[in-house]
Simulated assay, not measured.
Amino acid sequence: MSDPSRLSLLRFLERVQVGDLERTRAWIVAEEQRLAAEAARLPPPPPPDWLIEHGIGAGRAPVRVHVGGCWDTRTRCAPAGREEARRALAAGVEACTHCRPDTALGVLD
């Protein structure tokens, strides 16, 4: 019996890799379907009514107040209650210029 040719070995390798790729793609489709079904079952929680954005650094002082659904929020935001947001604005924390929480809270300069 002769040794398999280099070409036949490469063709065999190709078939194995194509099979692996098809299996991986099937796993990806299954995972996407699972995530879509999970997302359909669990609606996202509603945004908080108010957000307080904190700065960077050790003290992380409040830097801006936002309405809960504001598009201009950063990852450094924490949910806040109505009174906490009003106190922050009264203490001089800047109001977001896009969502205008000062107007929504009735606290204008």
Score class of each variant (00 low, 15 high):
5 S>Y: 09
104 A>V: 10
75 T>H: 10
15 R>N: 07
26 A>V: 11
46 P>S: 11
9 L>M: 08
63 V>F: 01
81 G>I: 00
27 W>D: 10
92 G>I: 05
53 E>M: 06
31 E>P: 00
41 R>C: 13
19 G>P: 01
86 R>H: 04
102 D>W: 00
89 L>V: 08
91 A>S: 15
69 G>S: 11
45 P>N: 06
105 L>R: 03
65 V>E: 00
96 C>R: 07
49 D>S: 11
6 R>L: 13
44 P>V: 07
1 M>W: 08
19 G>W: 08
90 A>H: 12
91 A>I: 02
12 F>Y: 13
4 P>H: 08
41 R>D: 15
50 W>H: 07
26 A>T: 09
38 E>R: 12
35 L>T: 11
89 L>S: 01
67 V>Y: 04
29 V>P: 00
38 E>Q: 15
4 P>E: 15
31 E>L: 15
2 S>D: 15
78 A>W: 11
57 G>K: 07
62 P>M: 03
64 R>A: 04
48 P>M: 09
88 A>V: 00
3 D>G: 02
51 L>I: 04
27 W>T: 07
36 A>Y: 03
97 T>Q: 14
65 V>W: 10
70 C>N: 04
57 G>V: 05
103 T>I: 14
61 A>M: 12
2 S>Q: 14
78 A>D: 15
8 S>T: 14
24 T>R: 12
92 G>K: 12
11 R>D: 15
70 C>R: 05
28 I>Y: 04
54 H>L: 11
108 L>N: 02
44 P>F: 07
54 H>T: 05
75 T>W: 03
52 I>P: 00
77 C>E: 04
65 V>F: 05
59 G>L: 15
4 P>C: 01
28 I>F: 02
102 D>F: 01
34 R>P: 06
71 W>N: 09
105 L>H: 08
85 A>F: 03
72 D>W: 04
96 C>G: 03
66 H>I: 03
92 G>W: 13
24 T>S: 14
57 G>I: 06
46 P>I: 03
39 A>T: 07
4 P>T: 04
86 R>K: 14
52 I>W: 01
79 P>K: 12
99 C>S: 02
43 P>V: 13
5 S>D: 13
108 L>Q: 05
37 A>T: 15
98 H>V: 15
5 S>H: 09
19 G>Y: 06
68 G>Y: 00
82 R>C: 02
40 A>H: 10
11 R>A: 15
57 G>M: 13
94 E>F: 04
50 W>K: 01
38 E>H: 09
31 E>Q: 11
91 A>K: 10
93 V>T: 05
15 R>M: 14
75 T>M: 09
6 R>H: 09
90 A>M: 06
64 R>W: 01
88 A>G: 03
20 D>V: 01
39 A>P: 01
35 L>A: 07
29 V>N: 07
68 G>C: 10
1 M>N: 08
62 P>H: 02
97 T>N: 07
46 P>V: 07
63 V>Y: 02
49 D>F: 05
104 A>R: 14
89 L>N: 02
19 G>T: 10
